[in-house]
């Protein structure tokens, strides 16, 4: 019955080795799917390459459906999984800042590490930037502390927020994802991918 480490079925020392193995898988996929090139990533925002959308939504929907199935068979206790707490204001403003960082930097933190590992110097610069950004946040935290901690809702779930069942929401997620996969090639055909 999962999750194994929080339930004490595997001792916590293994957690770091598991983290390393999970990371290797994560990095392998990010690089293999082409996320190690900022040209592929920002294609999403200029309409010439939707690989991010395809991988991202397939991954998210697969995981959500898989966790639901594992819950049904009693293999995992959903209540024990870490759910990121919701802070409305911080999530929206932080997200917008991240969006700005995405179109200027061309990476997100995870993909920048994967891209830096194959020798992309622009990704390495982005990684340097993340450390500076963390430092900047730490230093300005007292100024924005009240805002950052406002609108706290705890670990609420999207299906509760929308007032539907978990299964229905997951079905709609898959439906929307599949719909987008049919739609995006229409845009891709119209926009030329820049070659460099």
């Amino acid at each position: 019955m999962g999750p194994l480490v929080p339930q004490g079925i595997i001792s916590p020392e293994w957690d770091f080795i598991i983290a390393l193995v999970i990371g290797i898988g994560f990095g392998f996929i990010l690089e293999g799917a082409g996320f190690s090139s900022s040209r592929n990533l920002v294609g999403l925002f200029y309409g010439y390459d939707f690989v991010v959308l395809r991988v991202f939504f397939t991954g998210g929907a697969t995981a959500a459906a898989g966790i639901l199935l594992m819950d049904y068979f009693g293999w995992i206790d959903i209540g024990q999984l870490y759910v990121q707490p919701t802070y409305w204001g911080a999530a929206i403003v932080g997200g917008l800042i991240m969006g700005l960082g995405f179109v200027t930097g061309g990476f997100c933190p995870g993909t920048s590490f994967a891209a830096a590992s194959i020798g992309k110097m622009d990704a390495l610069m982005f990684v340097v930037g993340t450390f500076l950004g963390a430092f900047l946040f730490g230093e300005t935290y007292p100024l924005i502390q009240n805002f950052v901690n406002s609108g706290y809702e705890g670990g609420i779930k999207i299906y509760d927020s929308l007032g539907m069942s978990r299964g229905l929401f997951t079905f709609l997620l898959i439906l929307v994802a599949v719909g987008m996969f049919y739609f995006v090639p229409v845009i891709e055909k119209k926009v030329r991918k820049p070659e460099y």
């Binding site: 932080g94 960082g101 061309g106 990704a123 950004g133 963390a134």
Partner: peptide, 24 residues
């Protein structure tokens, strides 16, 4: 711009408690 993007992204991620991987 990569450096600038990194700074912005991490700042926003620290605020929102997660980035495209951890939060989204």
């Amino acid at each position: 711009w990569a450096l600038t993007g990194g700074i912005l992204f991490e700042y926003g991620a620290s605020m929102a408690r997660g980035c495209t991987s951890g939060a989204a």
